[in-house]
Design a protein around this nucleic acid. Structure first.
Lengths: 140, 140
DNA sequence: ACTGTAACTGAGATTAAATTGCAATATGGA
DNA sequence: TCCATATTGCAATTTAATCTCAGTTACAGT
């Protein structure tokens, strides 16, 4: 489970599992969608948490490092993150008009990428593919 | 040629081709690699240009809009751009250790993406694929 | 070539995301 | 329980990027 994974990671690094870190991870796990640090902070505040903005910003890199979340895009001038789902990686289509995000997954694409990496003697760890364009509703 | 394309774009939009805009585009065309706004600004200054930081930041979105450059990644907290090469689009592998950027191009990948878009009724305009991992030298 | 006007510029102030310093506090192994 | 050390909140700070505004410039129409 994610919390266990985080706990182990912290212990290994000689770090501590604090109430704040637990609350932050919990909120991320509970959320379904993308989030940005500020949004996460506000959510926690709304729920009565005393966590500070600084702690949110300090915890996020740890969660990225342990592989529980990843940075998925930058909107305007701030970063957006997303929980890495246990079962499978996915990529994004982003509508340039309405901002709608369509998630998709293609095994063929995954395989193809492994092939490309091999050819370049590159050890791929993760990737992100973003297709920008127009969704069905916004036509084109 | 790129400068002509930019000139036409500006005219169409009722904008003007100023000395500053010309200098900025010129410097980008002369450069081979990625660049970030600050770096571009310093290069221009070094070469004796009087262009201001603000003009650099104001010109970049225009060049993105006309399709001469694109944002390729964010390093730390600032954007990086790159001239779009005339002949063909390419994607990137980025070494998480030394930062080396390997450019690659796969027609199969391009085709596959068109298929994926079709399936979602999404009109793809452009895409960016980044594979993060470790280059040959940095092992794995 | 001249003119009017709207676009453009530089300099510095401003914004807002993200980071940091510090004194107080909490965690977890011994 | 004790205690070294990591962590916290707060507020100050940093920094990429944007904005303001008064003076300047490009260029379409004469």
């Amino acid at each position: 489970m994610e919390k266990q994974k985080f706990r182990e990671f912290l212990t290994t690094k000689g770090l501590k599992l604090t109430k704040e870190r637990d609350e932050i991870l919990h909120e991320i796990l509970v959320m379904k969608k993308h989030f940005d640090p500020e949004e996460l902070f506000v959510r926690l505040k709304t729920k009565g948490s005393k966590v500070s903005r600084a702690s949110v910003y300090r915890t996020i890199p740890l969660l990225v490092e342990v592989g529980l979340i990843e940075e998925v895009e930058r909107i305007d001038r701030h970063a957006h993150y997303e929980k890495i789902s246990e079962d499978r990686h996915h990529d994004h289509m982003i509508c340039m008009k309405c901002g709608k995000v369509i998630e998709f997954y293609s095994p063929t694409l995954e395989m193809l990428q492994r092939e490309i990496c091999q050819k370049e003697n590159f050890k791929g760890v993760r990737h992100s593919l973003e297709i920008l364009g127009y969704c069905e509703k916004c036509g084109g």
